[in-house]
Amino acid sequence: MIREEQKMQDITPDSLIRSVQAMKDGGKRLVQIGCARIGDIFEINYSFDKDYNFENLKLTIPSGLEVPSVSGIYTCAFVYENEIHDLYGIEITGIAIDFKGTFIRTSIKYPFGVVSSKEEDACQNKL
C-alpha cells in the first residue's frame, strides 16, 4: 500500500479567501470541504488536488464564529458549505446557493454540533 503524504496548512478566517484563491490560481481542483468538532472547536478542512497531489487547508474556529463562503471561487463549494451549516450549525456567509438549513433535513437540528452521550443511545436497547 502506498501511504499518501498528508500536506496540511493552517489558515485563519481572514486568510481563507486569499488562500483558496491562490489554490484556484494554481489550477487546483476543490476536492471537498469537511468539518470536524473537537470539543468546543471546529476544524474545517479544505482539500485540493492537482495531478494526484493532495493538499489541505485547515481552518480552526471556535463555535459561534462566522465563516466566509468560498463558493464565489469554486461554485461546487455550495454543496459542502450547506452540508456543514446543516450538520454543525456553523454560519457560513454568502453561499452561492444558500438553502438556509434545508439542504439536509434532520429531526434534530445541527446533529453533529452537539456532544452525544453514550447512555441515550436508543438503538442499543435490547428487545
Binding site: F99, T102, F103, I104, R105, P111, S116, K118
Partner: peptide
Amino acid sequence: AIPTIGYVHRGLEKLVEK
C-alpha cells in the same frame, strides 16, 4: 435546476462515537 437532497440522511458518520 436547483438540487435538494437530505431525505435519507442516516447519520452514519455520527456512529463512530458509538
